[in-house]
Nucleic acid binder design. Structure first.
Lengths: 220, 220
DNA sequence: CTCCAGTTTTTAGTATACAATTCTCTTGTA
DNA sequence: TACAAGAGAATTGTATACTAAAAACTGGAG
Protein backbone atom coordinates (compact mmCIF):
# COMPACT_ATOMS: atom_id res chain seq x y z
CA UNK A 1 0.00 0.00 0.00
CA UNK A 2 2.12 2.84 -1.22
CA UNK A 3 1.35 6.35 -0.14
CA UNK A 4 -0.79 8.72 -2.15
CA UNK A 5 0.89 11.76 -3.69
CA UNK A 6 -1.03 14.06 -1.35
CA UNK A 7 0.26 12.14 1.66
CA UNK A 8 3.79 12.21 0.32
CA UNK A 9 3.56 15.96 -0.17
CA UNK A 10 2.26 16.41 3.35
CA UNK A 11 5.14 14.40 4.78
CA UNK A 12 7.67 16.15 2.60
CA UNK A 13 6.42 19.54 3.73
CA UNK A 14 6.48 18.45 7.36
CA UNK A 15 10.08 17.39 7.00
CA UNK A 16 11.06 20.59 5.20
CA UNK A 17 9.44 22.62 7.97
CA UNK A 18 10.98 20.64 10.82
CA UNK A 19 14.39 20.76 9.20
CA UNK A 20 14.17 24.50 8.92
CA UNK A 21 14.10 24.80 5.13
CA UNK A 22 10.67 26.39 5.37
CA UNK A 23 10.92 28.86 8.22
CA UNK A 24 8.38 30.63 10.35
CA UNK A 25 5.95 32.82 8.45
CA UNK A 26 6.88 31.35 5.06
CA UNK A 27 3.92 31.43 2.75
CA UNK A 28 3.10 28.03 1.28
CA UNK A 29 2.05 29.01 -2.21
CA UNK A 30 -0.26 26.45 -3.75
CA UNK A 31 0.75 27.10 -7.35
CA UNK A 32 4.44 27.15 -6.51
CA UNK A 33 4.20 23.90 -4.55
CA UNK A 34 2.15 22.22 -7.25
CA UNK A 35 4.79 22.93 -9.85
CA UNK A 36 7.53 21.94 -7.38
CA UNK A 37 5.94 18.55 -6.80
CA UNK A 38 4.73 18.20 -10.37
CA UNK A 39 1.06 17.82 -9.51
CA UNK A 40 -2.01 20.00 -9.62
CA UNK A 41 -3.19 22.25 -6.81
CA UNK A 42 -5.72 19.72 -5.52
CA UNK A 43 -3.36 17.29 -3.76
CA UNK A 44 -1.25 20.23 -2.57
CA UNK A 45 -4.26 21.83 -0.94
CA UNK A 46 -5.13 18.56 0.79
CA UNK A 47 -1.59 18.34 2.13
CA UNK A 48 -1.81 21.92 3.39
CA UNK A 49 -5.10 21.23 5.14
CA UNK A 50 -3.48 18.37 7.01
CA UNK A 51 -0.45 20.43 7.92
CA UNK A 52 -2.71 23.13 9.31
CA UNK A 53 -4.70 20.60 11.30
CA UNK A 54 -1.53 19.23 12.84
CA UNK A 55 -0.43 22.70 13.88
CA UNK A 56 2.64 23.03 11.69
CA UNK A 57 0.97 25.63 9.52
CA UNK A 58 -1.78 28.14 9.85
CA UNK A 59 -4.51 28.56 7.32
CA UNK A 60 -6.05 32.01 6.94
CA UNK A 61 -9.23 31.92 4.88
CA UNK A 62 -8.71 33.47 1.46
CA UNK A 63 -5.27 34.66 2.49
CA UNK A 64 -3.14 31.55 2.30
CA UNK A 65 -1.29 29.00 4.37
CA UNK A 66 1.77 29.96 6.39
CA UNK A 67 4.40 28.00 8.28
CA UNK A 68 3.68 28.48 11.93
CA UNK A 69 6.51 28.02 14.36
CA UNK A 70 5.73 28.39 18.04
CA UNK A 71 6.52 31.66 19.80
CA UNK A 72 9.11 31.65 22.56
CA UNK A 73 6.50 31.46 25.30
CA UNK A 74 4.67 28.67 23.48
CA UNK A 75 7.96 26.88 23.13
CA UNK A 76 8.59 27.00 26.86
CA UNK A 77 5.06 25.72 27.42
CA UNK A 78 5.61 22.88 24.97
CA UNK A 79 8.83 21.83 26.67
CA UNK A 80 7.02 21.90 29.97
CA UNK A 81 4.38 19.49 28.62
CA UNK A 82 7.08 17.40 26.95
CA UNK A 83 8.82 17.03 30.31
CA UNK A 84 5.59 15.80 31.84
CA UNK A 85 4.99 13.25 29.08
CA UNK A 86 8.58 11.97 29.22
CA UNK A 87 8.22 11.74 32.94
CA UNK A 88 5.06 9.72 32.65
CA UNK A 89 6.63 7.44 30.05
CA UNK A 90 9.69 6.72 32.16
CA UNK A 91 7.54 6.06 35.23
CA UNK A 92 5.51 3.49 33.34
CA UNK A 93 8.57 2.11 31.60
CA UNK A 94 10.37 1.58 34.90
CA UNK A 95 7.65 -0.86 35.92
CA UNK A 96 7.67 -2.86 32.69
CA UNK A 97 11.24 -2.76 31.43
CA UNK A 98 12.77 -6.13 30.71
CA UNK A 99 16.54 -6.53 30.76
CA UNK A 100 16.43 -6.85 26.97
CA UNK A 101 14.72 -3.45 26.79
CA UNK A 102 17.37 -1.92 28.99
CA UNK A 103 20.14 -3.49 26.95
CA UNK A 104 18.70 -1.86 23.84
CA UNK A 105 18.62 1.48 25.64
CA UNK A 106 22.19 1.07 26.77
CA UNK A 107 23.21 0.38 23.20
CA UNK A 108 21.44 3.53 21.99
CA UNK A 109 23.00 5.48 24.82
CA UNK A 110 26.46 4.35 23.83
CA UNK A 111 25.80 5.30 20.22
CA UNK A 112 24.66 8.65 21.55
CA UNK A 113 27.86 9.12 23.50
CA UNK A 114 29.91 8.12 20.47
CA UNK A 115 28.09 10.72 18.36
CA UNK A 116 28.82 13.38 20.96
CA UNK A 117 32.47 12.39 21.04
CA UNK A 118 32.65 12.52 17.25
CA UNK A 119 30.84 15.84 17.20
CA UNK A 120 28.29 14.35 14.82
CA UNK A 121 25.20 16.30 15.84
CA UNK A 122 22.99 14.86 13.10
CA UNK A 123 23.77 11.37 14.27
CA UNK A 124 23.26 12.49 17.86
CA UNK A 125 19.75 13.76 17.12
CA UNK A 126 18.89 10.58 15.31
CA UNK A 127 20.09 8.23 18.03
CA UNK A 128 18.71 10.40 20.80
CA UNK A 129 15.29 10.35 19.13
CA UNK A 130 15.52 6.56 18.88
CA UNK A 131 16.41 6.29 22.56
CA UNK A 132 13.53 8.45 23.69
CA UNK A 133 11.17 6.74 21.25
CA UNK A 134 12.15 3.40 22.75
CA UNK A 135 11.26 4.68 26.20
CA UNK A 136 7.86 5.83 24.94
CA UNK A 137 7.22 2.37 23.56
CA UNK A 138 8.40 0.77 26.77
CA UNK A 139 5.72 2.68 28.67
CA UNK A 140 3.23 0.20 27.20
CA UNK A 141 0.82 3.06 26.54
CA UNK A 142 0.80 3.43 22.79
CA UNK A 143 -1.39 6.52 22.86
CA UNK A 144 1.15 8.19 25.11
CA UNK A 145 3.92 6.93 22.85
CA UNK A 146 2.26 8.53 19.85
CA UNK A 147 1.63 11.85 21.51
CA UNK A 148 5.12 11.99 22.93
CA UNK A 149 6.63 11.15 19.56
CA UNK A 150 4.55 13.86 17.88
CA UNK A 151 5.58 16.51 20.34
CA UNK A 152 9.18 15.34 20.29
CA UNK A 153 9.21 15.75 16.50
CA UNK A 154 7.66 19.19 16.66
CA UNK A 155 10.27 20.28 19.17
CA UNK A 156 13.12 18.82 17.16
CA UNK A 157 14.29 22.07 15.54
CA UNK A 158 14.40 23.72 18.95
CA UNK A 159 16.12 20.94 20.81
CA UNK A 160 19.47 22.42 19.87
CA UNK A 161 18.61 25.34 22.15
CA UNK A 162 19.40 23.05 25.03
CA UNK A 163 22.63 21.93 23.49
CA UNK A 164 24.02 25.37 22.77
CA UNK A 165 24.42 26.00 26.46
CA UNK A 166 28.02 25.20 27.30
CA UNK A 167 28.41 21.78 28.88
CA UNK A 168 24.80 20.83 28.35
CA UNK A 169 25.74 17.95 26.10
CA UNK A 170 27.89 16.26 28.73
CA UNK A 171 25.33 16.95 31.39
CA UNK A 172 22.72 15.42 29.13
CA UNK A 173 24.74 12.24 28.71
CA UNK A 174 25.25 12.00 32.47
CA UNK A 175 21.49 12.24 32.93
CA UNK A 176 20.94 9.46 30.42
CA UNK A 177 23.27 7.30 32.50
CA UNK A 178 21.39 8.03 35.70
CA UNK A 179 18.06 7.32 34.06
CA UNK A 180 19.26 4.00 32.67
CA UNK A 181 20.68 2.98 36.03
CA UNK A 182 17.41 3.94 37.72
CA UNK A 183 15.51 1.86 35.17
CA UNK A 184 17.78 -1.09 35.86
CA UNK A 185 17.08 -0.67 39.58
CA UNK A 186 13.35 -0.27 38.93
CA UNK A 187 13.62 3.08 40.73
CA UNK A 188 10.81 4.94 39.02
CA UNK A 189 11.10 7.95 41.31
CA UNK A 190 14.72 8.65 40.52
CA UNK A 191 14.19 8.03 36.81
CA UNK A 192 11.30 10.50 36.74
CA UNK A 193 13.14 13.12 38.68
CA UNK A 194 16.15 12.98 36.41
CA UNK A 195 14.03 12.85 33.29
CA UNK A 196 12.13 15.96 34.30
CA UNK A 197 15.40 17.78 34.80
CA UNK A 198 16.68 16.30 31.56
CA UNK A 199 13.88 17.73 29.46
CA UNK A 200 12.94 20.93 31.17
CA UNK A 201 14.26 23.92 29.39
CA UNK A 202 12.79 26.39 31.83
CA UNK A 203 15.91 26.41 33.95
CA UNK A 204 18.04 27.54 31.05
CA UNK A 205 19.09 31.14 31.43
CA UNK A 206 16.55 33.34 29.71
CA UNK A 207 19.12 35.27 27.74
CA UNK A 208 20.65 32.15 26.26
CA UNK A 209 17.24 31.01 25.26
CA UNK A 210 16.17 34.25 23.65
CA UNK A 211 19.38 34.72 21.72
CA UNK A 212 19.37 31.16 20.41
CA UNK A 213 15.74 31.52 19.56
CA UNK A 214 16.30 34.68 17.60
CA UNK A 215 19.08 33.03 15.66
CA UNK A 216 16.78 30.27 14.53
CA UNK A 217 13.92 32.61 13.82
CA UNK A 218 16.06 34.99 11.82
CA UNK A 219 15.65 37.88 14.30
CA UNK A 220 12.20 38.85 13.13
CA UNK B 1 -13.67 36.30 9.32
CA UNK B 2 -16.37 33.76 8.77
CA UNK B 3 -15.46 30.16 8.39
CA UNK B 4 -15.02 28.48 5.04
CA UNK B 5 -17.54 25.81 4.04
CA UNK B 6 -14.83 23.15 4.26
CA UNK B 7 -14.06 24.19 7.84
CA UNK B 8 -17.73 24.19 8.75
CA UNK B 9 -18.11 20.70 7.32
CA UNK B 10 -15.10 19.52 9.26
CA UNK B 11 -16.53 20.88 12.51
CA UNK B 12 -19.98 19.54 11.77
CA UNK B 13 -18.58 16.07 11.13
CA UNK B 14 -16.51 16.24 14.31
CA UNK B 15 -19.60 17.09 16.30
CA UNK B 16 -21.65 14.37 14.65
CA UNK B 17 -18.93 11.84 15.44
CA UNK B 18 -18.44 12.96 19.03
CA UNK B 19 -22.17 12.97 19.64
CA UNK B 20 -22.43 9.43 18.38
CA UNK B 21 -24.52 10.08 15.26
CA UNK B 22 -21.69 8.74 13.14
CA UNK B 23 -20.48 5.65 14.92
CA UNK B 24 -17.32 3.60 14.74
CA UNK B 25 -16.57 2.15 11.32
CA UNK B 26 -19.13 4.32 9.53
CA UNK B 27 -18.01 5.05 6.02
CA UNK B 28 -17.89 8.74 5.23
CA UNK B 29 -19.04 8.73 1.65
CA UNK B 30 -17.81 11.75 -0.26
CA UNK B 31 -20.72 11.93 -2.69
CA UNK B 32 -23.28 11.40 0.04
CA UNK B 33 -21.75 14.08 2.24
CA UNK B 34 -21.42 16.52 -0.63
CA UNK B 35 -25.13 16.27 -1.37
CA UNK B 36 -25.90 16.39 2.36
CA UNK B 37 -24.01 19.65 2.77
CA UNK B 38 -24.99 20.95 -0.65
CA UNK B 39 -21.44 21.39 -1.94
CA UNK B 40 -19.15 19.56 -4.31
CA UNK B 41 -16.78 16.78 -3.31
CA UNK B 42 -13.78 19.10 -3.09
CA UNK B 43 -14.56 20.82 0.24
CA UNK B 44 -15.86 17.55 1.65
CA UNK B 45 -12.59 15.85 0.85
CA UNK B 46 -10.64 18.62 2.54
CA UNK B 47 -12.80 18.24 5.64
CA UNK B 48 -12.18 14.49 5.63
CA UNK B 49 -8.42 14.98 5.33
CA UNK B 50 -8.49 17.17 8.42
CA UNK B 51 -10.63 14.72 10.35
CA UNK B 52 -8.20 11.94 9.52
CA UNK B 53 -5.25 14.07 10.59
CA UNK B 54 -6.89 14.76 13.93
CA UNK B 55 -7.48 11.07 14.50
CA UNK B 56 -11.27 11.06 14.42
CA UNK B 57 -11.32 9.20 11.15
CA UNK B 58 -9.06 6.86 9.23
CA UNK B 59 -8.27 7.27 5.60
CA UNK B 60 -7.47 4.15 3.59
CA UNK B 61 -5.96 4.96 0.20
CA UNK B 62 -8.43 4.27 -2.59
CA UNK B 63 -10.83 2.65 -0.14
CA UNK B 64 -12.43 5.55 1.67
CA UNK B 65 -12.61 7.37 4.98
CA UNK B 66 -14.09 5.72 8.05
CA UNK B 67 -15.02 6.95 11.49
CA UNK B 68 -12.44 5.66 13.88
CA UNK B 69 -13.33 5.36 17.53
CA UNK B 70 -10.64 4.21 19.90
CA UNK B 71 -10.53 0.58 20.96
CA UNK B 72 -11.09 -0.28 24.59
CA UNK B 73 -7.40 -0.53 25.32
CA UNK B 74 -6.69 2.73 23.52
CA UNK B 75 -9.45 4.31 25.56
CA UNK B 76 -7.86 3.24 28.81
CA UNK B 77 -4.55 4.61 27.57
CA UNK B 78 -6.18 7.91 26.64
CA UNK B 79 -7.77 8.26 30.06
CA UNK B 80 -4.40 7.53 31.61
CA UNK B 81 -2.82 10.39 29.66
CA UNK B 82 -5.81 12.61 30.38
CA UNK B 83 -5.32 12.01 34.09
CA UNK B 84 -1.71 13.07 33.78
CA UNK B 85 -2.57 16.25 31.91
CA UNK B 86 -5.31 17.19 34.34
CA UNK B 87 -2.91 16.51 37.15
CA UNK B 88 -0.31 18.78 35.62
CA UNK B 89 -2.89 21.49 35.04
CA UNK B 90 -4.15 21.42 38.61
CA UNK B 91 -0.60 21.48 39.97
CA UNK B 92 0.23 24.59 37.95
CA UNK B 93 -3.17 26.11 38.67
CA UNK B 94 -2.71 25.67 42.42
CA UNK B 95 0.28 27.99 42.27
CA UNK B 96 -1.40 30.73 40.25
CA UNK B 97 -5.04 30.67 41.27
CA UNK B 98 -6.44 34.01 42.42
CA UNK B 99 -9.45 34.07 44.69
CA UNK B 100 -11.49 35.33 41.72
CA UNK B 101 -10.47 32.22 39.78
CA UNK B 102 -11.52 29.99 42.64
CA UNK B 103 -14.82 31.80 43.00
CA UNK B 104 -15.54 31.11 39.35
CA UNK B 105 -14.73 27.43 39.86
CA UNK B 106 -16.97 27.29 42.91
CA UNK B 107 -19.79 28.75 40.87
CA UNK B 108 -19.28 26.16 38.12
CA UNK B 109 -19.12 23.45 40.73
CA UNK B 110 -22.43 24.54 42.21
CA UNK B 111 -23.99 24.57 38.76
CA UNK B 112 -22.59 21.07 38.33
CA UNK B 113 -24.16 19.91 41.57
CA UNK B 114 -27.48 21.47 40.58
CA UNK B 115 -27.39 19.63 37.26
CA UNK B 116 -26.73 16.35 39.05
CA UNK B 117 -29.60 17.00 41.45
CA UNK B 118 -31.91 17.81 38.54
CA UNK B 119 -30.75 14.72 36.65
CA UNK B 120 -29.85 16.95 33.69
CA UNK B 121 -26.91 15.06 32.26
CA UNK B 122 -26.54 17.29 29.20
CA UNK B 123 -26.22 20.32 31.44
CA UNK B 124 -23.85 18.38 33.68
CA UNK B 125 -21.51 17.59 30.79
CA UNK B 126 -21.57 21.19 29.66
CA UNK B 127 -20.82 22.70 33.07
CA UNK B 128 -18.28 20.01 33.91
CA UNK B 129 -16.43 20.74 30.67
CA UNK B 130 -16.43 24.43 31.53
CA UNK B 131 -15.07 23.73 35.00
CA UNK B 132 -12.25 21.58 33.72
CA UNK B 133 -11.56 24.02 30.89
CA UNK B 134 -11.23 26.78 33.44
CA UNK B 135 -8.66 24.77 35.34
CA UNK B 136 -6.68 24.22 32.14
CA UNK B 137 -6.67 27.96 31.54
CA UNK B 138 -5.66 28.63 35.12
CA UNK B 139 -2.55 26.52 34.62
CA UNK B 140 -1.15 29.46 32.66
CA UNK B 141 0.21 27.05 30.06
CA UNK B 142 -1.94 27.62 27.01
CA UNK B 143 -0.35 24.78 25.05
CA UNK B 144 -1.28 22.42 27.86
CA UNK B 145 -4.74 23.98 27.97
CA UNK B 146 -5.21 23.31 24.27
CA UNK B 147 -4.01 19.72 24.40
CA UNK B 148 -6.08 18.99 27.46
CA UNK B 149 -9.16 20.50 25.87
CA UNK B 150 -8.61 18.46 22.71
CA UNK B 151 -8.27 15.21 24.57
CA UNK B 152 -11.17 16.08 26.85
CA UNK B 153 -13.36 16.61 23.79
CA UNK B 154 -12.27 13.37 22.20
CA UNK B 155 -13.08 11.49 25.37
CA UNK B 156 -16.45 13.16 25.76
CA UNK B 157 -18.56 10.32 24.35
CA UNK B 158 -16.86 7.90 26.70
CA UNK B 159 -17.03 10.00 29.82
CA UNK B 160 -20.41 8.55 30.62
CA UNK B 161 -18.66 5.25 31.21
CA UNK B 162 -17.50 6.69 34.49
CA UNK B 163 -20.94 7.91 35.38
CA UNK B 164 -22.78 4.67 34.77
CA UNK B 165 -21.06 3.12 37.74
CA UNK B 166 -23.49 3.42 40.64
CA UNK B 167 -22.64 6.28 42.96
CA UNK B 168 -19.89 7.60 40.71
CA UNK B 169 -21.69 10.88 40.19
CA UNK B 170 -21.81 11.70 43.91
CA UNK B 171 -18.24 10.56 44.36
CA UNK B 172 -17.26 12.79 41.49
CA UNK B 173 -18.88 15.82 43.09
CA UNK B 174 -17.16 15.09 46.37
CA UNK B 175 -13.83 15.01 44.56
CA UNK B 176 -14.58 18.36 42.97
CA UNK B 177 -15.14 19.75 46.46
CA UNK B 178 -11.84 18.40 47.73
CA UNK B 179 -9.98 19.75 44.72
CA UNK B 180 -11.47 23.21 45.13
CA UNK B 181 -10.65 23.25 48.83
CA UNK B 182 -7.10 22.16 48.08
CA UNK B 183 -6.80 24.95 45.50
CA UNK B 184 -8.03 27.43 48.06
CA UNK B 185 -5.40 26.18 50.48
CA UNK B 186 -2.74 26.24 47.77
CA UNK B 187 -2.22 22.54 48.50
CA UNK B 188 -1.03 21.38 45.08
CA UNK B 189 -0.22 17.89 46.31
CA UNK B 190 -3.70 17.11 47.57
CA UNK B 191 -5.30 18.69 44.51
CA UNK B 192 -3.17 16.54 42.20
CA UNK B 193 -3.79 13.38 44.11
CA UNK B 194 -7.54 13.85 44.08
CA UNK B 195 -7.55 14.89 40.46
CA UNK B 196 -5.69 11.80 39.40
CA UNK B 197 -8.22 9.66 41.19
CA UNK B 198 -11.00 11.79 39.74
CA UNK B 199 -10.00 11.17 36.16
CA UNK B 200 -8.53 7.74 36.17
CA UNK B 201 -10.87 5.19 34.77
CA UNK B 202 -8.48 2.31 35.22
CA UNK B 203 -9.81 1.52 38.65
CA UNK B 204 -13.30 0.99 37.33
CA UNK B 205 -14.25 -2.64 37.29
CA UNK B 206 -13.32 -4.14 33.97
CA UNK B 207 -16.70 -5.74 33.41
CA UNK B 208 -18.53 -2.46 33.88
CA UNK B 209 -16.20 -0.86 31.43
CA UNK B 210 -16.50 -3.51 28.77
CA UNK B 211 -20.28 -3.76 28.97
CA UNK B 212 -20.72 0.01 28.78
CA UNK B 213 -18.25 0.16 25.97
CA UNK B 214 -20.08 -2.48 23.98
CA UNK B 215 -23.33 -0.62 24.43
CA UNK B 216 -21.85 2.50 22.92
CA UNK B 217 -20.12 0.62 20.15
CA UNK B 218 -23.21 -1.34 19.20
CA UNK B 219 -21.74 -4.70 20.23
CA UNK B 220 -19.64 -5.14 17.13
C1' DC C 1 -24.53 -24.98 -4.91
C1' DT C 2 -19.85 -23.07 -5.00
C1' DC C 3 -16.17 -21.01 -7.04
C1' DC C 4 -13.83 -18.37 -10.46
C1' DA C 5 -13.06 -15.28 -14.54
C1' DG C 6 -14.46 -11.36 -16.95
C1' DT C 7 -17.25 -7.38 -17.22
C1' DT C 8 -19.73 -3.53 -15.33
C1' DT C 9 -20.39 -0.18 -11.94
C1' DT C 10 -18.99 2.58 -8.43
C1' DT C 11 -15.84 5.46 -6.12
C1' DA C 12 -11.42 7.64 -4.93
C1' DG C 13 -7.71 10.67 -6.78
C1' DT C 14 -6.34 14.28 -9.72
C1' DA C 15 -6.57 17.84 -13.29
C1' DT C 16 -8.71 21.70 -15.06
C1' DA C 17 -11.99 25.43 -15.34
C1' DC C 18 -14.33 29.02 -13.23
C1' DA C 19 -15.92 32.23 -9.51
C1' DA C 20 -14.92 35.21 -5.76
C1' DT C 21 -11.88 37.64 -2.91
C1' DT C 22 -7.62 39.86 -1.83
C1' DC C 23 -3.46 42.09 -3.16
C1' DT C 24 -0.97 45.37 -6.01
C1' DC C 25 0.13 48.89 -8.85
C1' DT C 26 -1.26 52.89 -11.10
C1' DT C 27 -3.25 57.29 -11.38
C1' DG C 28 -5.25 61.39 -9.88
C1' DT C 29 -5.98 64.74 -6.25
C1' DA C 30 -5.02 67.48 -2.16
C1' DT D 1 5.03 64.15 -1.30
C1' DA D 2 1.23 61.68 0.81
C1' DC D 3 -2.76 59.34 0.17
C1' DA D 4 -7.09 57.55 -1.58
C1' DA D 5 -9.70 55.27 -5.38
C1' DG D 6 -9.93 52.14 -8.90
C1' DA D 7 -8.46 48.99 -12.44
C1' DG D 8 -5.87 44.95 -13.10
C1' DA D 9 -3.36 40.88 -11.56
C1' DA D 10 -2.79 37.19 -8.66
C1' DT D 11 -4.51 33.76 -5.55
C1' DT D 12 -7.82 31.19 -2.98
C1' DG D 13 -12.09 28.35 -2.91
C1' DT D 14 -15.25 25.47 -5.40
C1' DA D 15 -17.34 22.94 -9.23
C1' DT D 16 -16.86 19.81 -12.80
C1' DA D 17 -14.58 16.54 -15.81
C1' DC D 18 -11.63 12.86 -16.36
C1' DT D 19 -8.67 8.75 -14.93
C1' DA D 20 -7.72 4.75 -12.57
C1' DA D 21 -8.47 1.46 -9.10
C1' DA D 22 -11.45 -1.29 -6.28
C1' DA D 23 -15.95 -3.32 -5.40
C1' DA D 24 -20.05 -5.57 -7.25
C1' DC D 25 -22.22 -8.23 -10.48
C1' DT D 26 -22.87 -11.75 -14.09
C1' DG D 27 -22.44 -15.98 -16.21
C1' DG D 28 -20.44 -20.27 -16.72
C1' DA D 29 -17.63 -24.37 -15.27
C1' DG D 30 -16.90 -27.87 -11.88
Amino acid sequence: MDKLPSAKIRDSLEQRIVEGELGHGKRLDETELSSFYGVSRTPVREALQRLAESGLAEHLPRRGTFVRSPSLSQLVEMFEVMAELECMAIRLAARRATSADIDALVKDNEACRAAVAAGDTKKYYEVNARLHGRIYQMSGNSFLANEARRLHDRLRPFRRLQLRVRGRMDESMAEHDIILQALRDGDAERAMETMKKHITIVGVRFNDLVSSFNTIMGDE
